[in-house]
Amino acid sequence: MAYRFLDSVAIADVAFEATGEDLAELFVAAGDATINTMIDSVDGILAKTSRKIQLSNGELDLLLFDFLQELIYYKDADGLLLRVPRVEIEEQGGEFKLIATGFGEEIDPTRHEQRADVKAVTLHQFKLEQTSEGWRCFVILDI
């Protein structure tokens, strides 16, 4: 897994760091980290249904913010746990565009061992940066 939860950063919430060799990989990892905050095993999510995600933003870090927020939206609006295996990100005239499909299923308390509901992605210390190995982000989720 290209993400790890960080101890003692957000005392009542959850902080994670995700990495990727490229941006797409980082987005996938950060998406899984967000879902993993809510249930114990993301591998236990079956691809029974899908949701198309299309976003655009002038700022790359806020595109990540919006992407994670989409996963939280579908968790409440449709009761869905979604994993996104692939994302496409491209820049067009100063706008970053993202196209992806989330695959998953409805939350099933008998099969998905729950952790904590994620209320929102916070912008507190929110960071997306390019490193010598690729990309890294730091995210605090409100739970």
């Binding site: 913010f65 939206y73 992605v121 912008l123 929110f126 409100d142």
Partner: peptide
């Protein structure tokens, strides 16, 4: 949660440009 998120995003887009406010924390 969504109401707060919606307006956090909106405020972020107008805070500096429209109202000249700078905060140390985007939150």
């Amino acid at each position: 949660h969504q109401v707060a998120t919606d307006y956090l995003r909106l405020f972020l887009s107008v805070m500096r440009k429209k109202y000249g406010i700078e905060m140390r924390d985007r939150e």
